[in-house]
Simulated assay, not measured.
Amino acid sequence: MHDWKNELDALVAETMAFTKSLKLEIQLPRSLPKEAVERGDLSASEYDGSEREEIKKRVESFKAHQKHFTREREEYANSQLRRIRPITRA
């Protein structure tokens, strides 16, 4: 019954030795984005249309904002995959 405990201890010891043998450098992002997208709020002076037009402008702004975040997220994921790919092949 205690055999599995010995195997578990051996596995943990082997894993710890393996992780200590790895030499990884963690690279921080070069720079943090200042502002993802400038706010597209409409001031009272800019508003001269109907509510429908205001909603349309806000929806377009929101969609552009979401596309920007999606593109940024994909670029970050690809950069991380390029960074770890050589490590995982070894």
Rank of each mutant, 00 (worst) to 15 (best):
I87N: 02
A36D: 01
R82A: 14
L22C: 08
F62M: 09
S79M: 03
E14R: 09
L24R: 08
K20H: 12
Q27Y: 04
E51F: 14
R83K: 13
I84D: 01
A36R: 10
V37A: 03
K20V: 07
R85Q: 05
K23A: 10
V37R: 11
D9Q: 08
D9M: 06
N78G: 05
E46I: 01
T19W: 13
H2M: 14
E60C: 07
N78M: 10
R82M: 07
A77K: 03
G49I: 06
E60Y: 08
G40A: 15
T15N: 12
L22Q: 07
K57W: 02
R73Y: 10
K57Q: 06
A13L: 06
Q27T: 04
Q27P: 02
L42P: 00
L42F: 11
T15L: 14
L81P: 01
L28M: 09
K57F: 06
K34T: 12
V59W: 01
F62C: 08
P29A: 12
E38N: 13
S50D: 02
L24M: 02
F62V: 10
E25S: 11
R71T: 15
L28R: 12
T19A: 11
P86V: 02
E74Q: 15
K23D: 07
F62H: 10
H2F: 15
W4Q: 13
A77H: 03
E38C: 09
S43W: 03
N6M: 13
A13P: 00
G49M: 07
V37Q: 00
K63R: 14
L42C: 06
T19K: 14
T88V: 15
I84T: 03
L32K: 12
F69L: 15
A13I: 01
A10P: 02
V37I: 01
P29G: 06
E75L: 15
A77W: 03
S21F: 10
A44Q: 11
R85C: 04
S45E: 02
L24K: 05
S43T: 15
L22G: 06
L11I: 05
S43Q: 04
E75F: 11
K5G: 09
K20C: 07
S21T: 03
I26C: 02
S50R: 12
A13E: 04
D41P: 04
S31V: 05
K34E: 05
S43E: 02
I84F: 09
S79F: 00
S45G: 05
G40T: 14
E35G: 13
L24T: 00
K5I: 05
T88Q: 07
K67T: 06
I26V: 01
Y76C: 09
L81R: 14
G49W: 06
